[in-house]
Nucleic acid binder design. Structure first.
Lengths: 197, 197
DNA sequence: AAATTATTCTAGCATCGCTAGATTGTCAAG
DNA sequence: CTTGACAATCTAGCGATGCTAGAATAATTT
């Protein structure tokens, strides 16, 4: 079955070349420049070939997004490292923002463009959950209701990333805003534990 | 000059009919359904007429967005009313989220679709600033660095709105998340004042 | 009434996502 | 080696998009 294996490998490789090309073009020229014709030219095949790999253009964007979710999970994990407590919070927050700002098109694919990737749902793909778990880990020491606190922490970071990316916040104050979010999580710890849920 | 006035009025009215149609269609069927042909049919003129009002399709979206910025500013102001302190924070936060969730297409126009409306900039249009100021007003009592604190508060609300809209948070926990943000602002007050800037 | 200007429409271009049907390549059976 | 079946791929084109040039109409001025 070695020959069928080779075909399968080549097919998989072609698929990943499509995704890689989409990602590169998007990051360089924006998602508007990622057309099916352009991708076909890039991988040196005709357009219908793309549709044997992906149902439609959105599915290609979604494939890039999933790459992004995988990467942000490991990036968050690595950035935290062995640090704990407030230090871990700070590093995770900074790493999150750096990720979003340094790869805006990737981040856009993950959070702005597609809608068919469900989250708070049973069908949620594991890639989408890993990043959330990484955040939950650093938030947990400070909050009783971890799920809600993580959602809120994540939302704050996401909001900072989005508004920053859109040029709607003062770039110079980025670190200060991150520090403020971290301080907020730390400060609520006493209250929230004292108050219960 | 009454006749020229009438023409000006009619022209302005036609323009606002375009914007209104775009907004209604977007809210009912999504922005993808807002095509130039569709809008032309809606106002019962040919397509080129639209281009005598707006430079391109994006400019129509931007016009809807500006309506949104005007409205969210007054909505925030009204929701706060005479309340102060923590109460004012809570009401503003809830009003913000309600606005975003109840008019998703409008909110999308304001924050997702266009990029040519600049913010932290000298050319920032006053409509875009008013909402920010409304938030600053309720945040100010709790923070020394109002500008940064308002940016951060706004980002938290925006993140909650976006992730909520995309179905990536548990809908049932929305109020809890808002409460958490409010609590965070209140809790940081002591620290941030004590620590200075 | 004629000429000029402003207003609006018809018709079409380039490009997009996507697909049906023809064409080529591959490989086992005769 | 030939042939036939099957898989892989391409050519060509459909419908819809944003946008625009140039024709046609309406309004205003001379």
């Amino acid at each position: 079955m070695s020959i069928a294996d080779r075909k399968g490998r080549q097919r998989a490789e072609r698929e990943s070349r499509i995704v890689a090309a989409a990602r590169v073009i998007a990051e360089r020229e924006g998602w508007g420049a990622v057309t099916v014709r352009r991708l076909a030219e890039e991988i040196e095949y005709s357009q219908p070939v793309l549709y044997s790999h992906f149902e439609n253009r959105d599915a290609i964007v979604a494939a890039v997004a999933i790459e992004g979710f995988r990467e942000i999970a490991t990036t968050l994990g690595e950035s935290v490292g062995r640090s704990t407590g407030r230090r871990a919070l700070e590093r995770a927050a900074m790493a999150y923002l750096d990720f979003a700002v340094s790869q805006p098109a990737l981040y856009e694919a993950m959070f702005v463009l597609p809608t068919d990737l469900r989250f708070a749902d049973a069908r949620t793909r594991p890639e989408l959950r890993a990043g959330f778990d990484a955040l939950a880990k650093v938030v947990a020491p400070f909050c009783a209701n971890v799920e809600t606190a993580t959602e809120t922490f994540w939302a704050a970071l996401h909001g900072l990333a989005e508004l920053d990316r859109a040029g709607r916040l003062r770039p110079a104050a980025r670190a200060e805003r991150v520090a403020m979010v971290v301080r907020a999580v730390v400060a609520t710890a006493g209250e929230s534990i004292g108050r219960g849920a």
